[in-house]
Simulated scan of single mutants.
Amino acid sequence: MNIECINWAEPNNENIDNLIKINLNELIESYDYLSSVCSYKKFPVGETLNNSIDKIVRNKPLFFVSHSALLSAIENDNQKKCHCVLDDIFDTLLHLKKEEIEISVSRFGRKYISSVEDTFLSVMERDHLETYGGVYGGKRSSVITPDVEKSYRTTLELSRFLKKLKHIDISHFDEISILIDNIILVESNGVNASSYLNILGMFFLRVFEKKNENWSRLAEHVVHESAHNLLYHIWYQKPVITDDEGKYYTPFRLDYRPLSGVYHAMFVLARTIYAFNNLIENSFLNKDDVKSHYNESNNSTPFKEKFYQTVRVLRESGKLTLFGEKLVSDCENLVNACNSNI
């Protein structure tokens, strides 16, 4: 697969399916190596994972986050913890079944074993602390399990949006369905939605408040977080910037961010503009109902202007790789072809 020759700006389910398989094969190789590092011999880790690839491909978050936990245990020279992680992997494989390509939705704290849920929360809190200092909108942030009624209403709205997307853009729908295995619903005063490099295949989503919000918030989050997942997969294989030193302007944040963050903003903006444009042109969405829910700086700058701002910052940095510049150009072409002025 020649990753550098593909136009990753345009949704394509075959491309992402092949890329995910490449990354999962490398993940399994790493598991096999790390099991030998920590002298684990209870079962052949690499062979067993390879034989279970059909199960893993629809349960990606569990295996990415467990790999992160295994790495951390090895770095801390904690052999007991290493063995516990691999024991849990074995138990998980015993219970997993091959699943159809369909996005599942679950409430935070209610899908996985407690050790995995605790790791999810730890990853989220650490990232939120590094990004926002653990505070959002002047308040200390919290994440809890949402109540059943709110969760039920959110699942209905998600289903309605995904049906709309499938109707107007089957390629985008199929790509998201391959990228995302699970959406974790949360109640939070500081997290609208989030995804992470070491938990690929899922994202966290604050439950929908129908009285106060338009369903376009959920549409934006699904497209935005799926795009983050896609770029993470690409980045595992090919760098888009030469280094991540220094801080740069981004239209979403109050503070300056690393260039990697600006690149992610560029990519997810392109995909969001593309998706909203399709919804508007097919009369599923009113342009006046479109607004960004990733806007800590609380500015009214349109999506397209924010996109072009990130493009300028990236090019002026002088740190784009040839592949990174190609992807920026492909995203420009995608946005330029969108007629809606959003």
Rank of each mutant, 00 (worst) to 15 (best):
F108A: 00
G109N: 02
G109L: 02
G109V: 00
R110A: 08
R110T: 15
K111Q: 05
Y112V: 01
I113G: 07
I113H: 10
S115K: 12
S115D: 12
D118P: 03
D118N: 11
D118K: 10
F120N: 01
L121N: 03
V123L: 13
V123W: 03
M124A: 15
E125R: 13
R126A: 15
H128N: 09
L129S: 11
T131F: 07
Y132N: 14
G133T: 13
G134V: 09
G134P: 07
G134H: 09
G134S: 12
V135H: 08
Y136G: 04
G137A: 10
G137V: 04
G138A: 15
K139M: 13
K139A: 12
R140A: 12
R140V: 14
R140S: 15
R140P: 08
V143L: 01
T145P: 05
T145D: 09
D147Y: 06
V148G: 08
V148H: 14
E149V: 10
E149C: 11
E149Q: 14
K150V: 01
R153W: 09
R153S: 10
T154L: 03
T155W: 01
T155C: 06
E157W: 05
L158V: 06
S159N: 13
R160E: 05
F161G: 00
F161Y: 03
F161H: 00
F161V: 00
L162N: 05
L162F: 14
K164W: 04
